[in-house]
Computed example of a mutant assay.
Amino acid sequence: MKSTVLFIAISLISLNSYSQTEKDSLTKIVRERIKNIKDSQSENPYYSKEEAQEDYTNEVGTFQALAQPAEDSDLANYFKIYLEKKLLKKIDFSAIKWSSFYKHLSNNKYNYTIRLTFELSKTGKATNCRINTGNKDVDRKVIEVFKKYPLEKLGLKESDKSGKISVQLFAKEDKDVLIKASKFAVVDEAPVIKGCEDLQFYWQVNKCLYEQLNEYIVQHISLKTLNSQELRGEIILRYRFTINETGKITKVNSIAPNKIIKDEIDRLIMSFNAITAPGKRNNIPKTTYCETYRTITIENLK
């Protein structure tokens, strides 16, 4: 009886080692492949509509209580000086509302506010800034203005380098877009994995989580299960799971080429027990939704 030996390689969808032209091409390919996964798995949502709305409402409530956004906050007054008022008219809440992240929310549940997220660099400056105003030109200008704001006024500390930081900047009230900005920053920390405790920055901690998980999956995945499916070549997997307030993995619901591979990936994620601390928001333990895409290449060794 002829035996088959499988070779499996797993990798992050990463563009760091490519030229800009290659990055643009690969990014397009990856986006198309990820879209195909989402489209083909629309019958397998992570949250039901009701669960998504409840989770969203709870998150918004927590954020608002911590950030305390106001039209007369120091950050709001700063933007009123340095951001041209005419740009507010270009903010398109309809484009934001119908993005993939919010499109399943009913209008009466949707919170018409816009946040900017960023991380702290080694020198304490804002880096990796992201915002969605529905207009890319406005996005760029807002980030440019924000990077000149003195971050110490947001109550940030040296230890916040390990978090992803969010501030509200805009709100829509009575059909008008206002500068209604946070008084305080909200800092979200990623769950910590054994061996990653001494990492200083958010991106390092987050990357370490997924790298450790993938290494675990490669080491423990059932070759017999893979071989029985006769899958060869490169396949994309979408890992989806939650780490609750106690650091336990729950609600695993990955996406794979078929149910047998999905069940195997889900089994491995559920058995991954290297988490030493849950995610936190302003130093209070919280539930963290985790998601990543990975490619596995399966080949026969002869």
Rank of each mutant, 00 (worst) to 15 (best):
I284S: 07
T117M: 04
I261A: 15
Q200W: 08
G163D: 10
I10E: 12
F241P: 06
A76R: 13
N253E: 08
L120Q: 08
Q168W: 07
E173G: 02
P278E: 06
G155Q: 01
Y102A: 04
V142F: 02
R140Q: 05
E245Q: 14
D263Q: 15
G155A: 09
T276M: 12
Q219V: 03
N36C: 00
P150E: 14
Q200V: 12
E264C: 09
L116I: 01
F63N: 15
A274S: 15
L12T: 13
Y293M: 11
S162T: 09
S25D: 09
T127P: 06
N244H: 04
R33H: 06
R240W: 03
I298C: 00
A126V: 06
E32N: 11
S162M: 10
I261E: 13
H104R: 14
S25R: 11
T4C: 11
E189F: 02
I193D: 00
S14M: 06
R33N: 10
S106G: 01
I131D: 05
G134H: 00
L268D: 14
K161P: 01
K141D: 12
P191K: 00
R281V: 13
D198M: 14
P257R: 07
E144I: 04
V30Y: 15
D39G: 10
S19H: 12
K89G: 05
L6E: 00
L237D: 00
T113S: 06
P285G: 13
K38G: 11
S222Y: 04
A181N: 04
M1A: 12
F170Q: 07
Y149V: 08
E158H: 12
D139G: 05
S99A: 13
I260A: 10
S25F: 11
L66S: 09
E245F: 03
V142H: 03
I29R: 13
S162Y: 07
Y82W: 11
L83P: 05
D137I: 08
E51I: 01
I13T: 02
Q168T: 11
K89W: 02
E291M: 04
E71P: 08
R240C: 02
L116N: 00
Q212I: 11
G134S: 06
N300V: 03
L88W: 03
K23R: 15
T62V: 08
F79D: 14
C129T: 08
P191E: 04
S254V: 11
K90Q: 00
I179V: 11
R31L: 14
K86I: 09
F146A: 05
D188E: 01
N128Y: 14
E230C: 03
I34Q: 14
S25Q: 07
K23E: 14
L75G: 08
D198R: 12
N111T: 09
L169I: 10
Q53A: 15
I269Q: 15
K286V: 15
I249S: 14
T62F: 04
G61M: 10
K23T: 13
S159T: 00
K180M: 05
E189K: 05
K122V: 06
A185S: 09
I29C: 09
R238D: 12
T225I: 15
I29P: 05
N282G: 02
D137Q: 10
Y78Q: 09
Y289L: 07
N16V: 01
Y216K: 05
T27F: 11
K161E: 06
N77L: 07
